[in-house]
């Protein structure tokens, strides 16, 4: 997985910026498979509230998570205007429902700052670093931290 190592100043990284829970986040472009409009999902019984359900992505069953809810903000009520970002880490494909996708942001690796240590809430843990842009600050989502591979039921 891409580490945002300050020592590799030469490196150029591209991110897709998005809005979830009213805040700006971004995901590294290499982890994104595609971006699609919201379409109705098949609900999963007994799943955590941030799991919206599953969709059929060209024959694969892909779970869709409400990113805002996962990060501890209030849940989104999905409409046609919302967007699903299909992400892939290792073999796992997961869709993230977000409010909107803004732009592709290219930065030098040395522009990425470490996340200041704050209290360990859901959103702080899932942030791998921050990028100052003008007066704003965009948080980099760590898919690894957001979507741990080991579940309680894994054999």
């Amino acid at each position: 997985m891409q580490r945002h190592d300050n020592s590799k100043a030469e490196k150029h990284i591209e991110f897709v910026t998005l809005v979830a829970g009213g805040q700006s986040f971004c995901i590294e472009i290499t982890q994104i498979r595609e971006i699609r409009r919201w379409s109705p999902v098949t609900h999963l019984p007994h799943s955590p509230s941030y799991v919206l359900g599953v969709i059929n992505l060209r024959g694969a069953v892909v779970p869709i998570l409400d990113l805002a809810a996962k990060l501890g903000f209030s849940a989104i009520t999905p409409t046609e205007r919302h967007v699903i970002i299909i992400t892939a880490i290792d073999d796992r494909i997961v869709g993230l429902l977000v409010e909107s996708v803004s732009e592709i942001l290219g930065v030098q690796a040395d522009m990425v700052r470490e996340t200041p240590r704050t209290k360990e809430d859901a959103s702080a843990i899932a942030v791998a670093g921050i990028i100052p842009v003008g007066d704003d600050m965009i948080k980099i989502i760590s898919l690894d931290a957001l979507l741990p591979t080991t579940l309680a039921t894994a054999a």
Binding site: A60, V61, P63
Partner: peptide, 11 residues
Amino acid sequence: KSMQGTYGQIT
């Protein structure tokens, strides 16, 4: 279709 890889087991 397996849901293992993407989601985990659901009772």
